[in-house]
Amino acid sequence: MMLLKLDPAKAPHNGPSPELMDEMGKLIEEMTRAGVLLDTAGLRPLDEGTRIQLSGGKLTVVDGPFAEAKEVIGGYALIQAKSREEAVEWASRFLAIHGDEWEMESEIRQVEEPA
């Protein structure tokens, strides 16, 4: 799983440009043809989100926007890579197409499979 994280204060306020969307589309198509990409999606803006918090056995529901949000998940890609190195390569390519205007990171974590 590639989690795509960003600081909302350090991302373009109008979101991805049409050119960036085109480049992402090309990479997604390449990953699909290579048999690596299983699923991917971007997430709606933070102000449309809801958090459900558990503390001391009590659940609290909080609607966005979240003032303390320093880092949010902006999207994800579920990939099936042959190795950690291959996963890093795909994540690096995805981040690189965003250029200088974006400040992002990708966290790669293996999905836990049933025993």
Rank of each mutant, 00 (worst) to 15 (best):
M1H: 07
M2F: 06
L3P: 00
L4S: 02
L6D: 08
D7W: 05
D7G: 03
P8F: 06
P8T: 09
P8Y: 05
A9F: 04
A9N: 11
K10N: 12
A11I: 03
A11T: 12
H13N: 04
N14P: 00
G15L: 10
G15R: 07
G15F: 07
P16K: 06
P16H: 06
P16A: 14
S17L: 04
L20F: 03
M21C: 04
E23K: 15
M24W: 13
G25Y: 10
I28N: 15
I28C: 00
I28Y: 04
E30V: 07
T32A: 14
T32E: 13
R33F: 05
A34D: 15
G35M: 11
G35D: 11
G35N: 09
G35V: 10
V36A: 11
V36M: 12
L37K: 12
L38T: 04
L38V: 14
D39Q: 09
T40Y: 03
A41K: 13
G42Y: 01
L43C: 02
R44F: 03
P45E: 10
P45M: 04
L46K: 04
L46V: 13
D47W: 04
D47N: 14
D47L: 01
G49V: 00
G49K: 02
G49N: 09
T50N: 03
R51Y: 01
R51K: 15
R51L: 09
Q53D: 06
Q53S: 11
Q53P: 00
L54K: 01
S55A: 13
G56P: 05
G56V: 12
G57C: 08
G57H: 08
K58H: 12
K58Y: 03
T60N: 08
V61I: 14
V61P: 00
D63H: 10
D63I: 02
G64Y: 03
G64F: 02
F66Y: 08
F66C: 06
F66N: 05
F66H: 07
A67L: 11
E68F: 01
E68V: 04
E71D: 02
E71F: 03
E71Y: 01
V72N: 00
Y76V: 05
Y76T: 04
A77H: 11
L78D: 12
L78Y: 09
L78I: 15
L78A: 12
I79T: 15
A81H: 10
S83E: 08
R84H: 13
E85C: 05
E85I: 07
E86Q: 15
E86R: 06
A87H: 07
V88R: 12
W90K: 08
A91F: 09
S92A: 15
L95Y: 00
L95T: 06
I97A: 06
H98R: 08
H98F: 08
G99T: 02
G99E: 01
G99C: 02
G99N: 02
D100T: 02
D100E: 09
E101Y: 02
E101D: 08
W102T: 04
W102D: 06
E103S: 14
E103Q: 14
E103W: 02
M104R: 09
M104W: 00
E105I: 00
E105V: 06
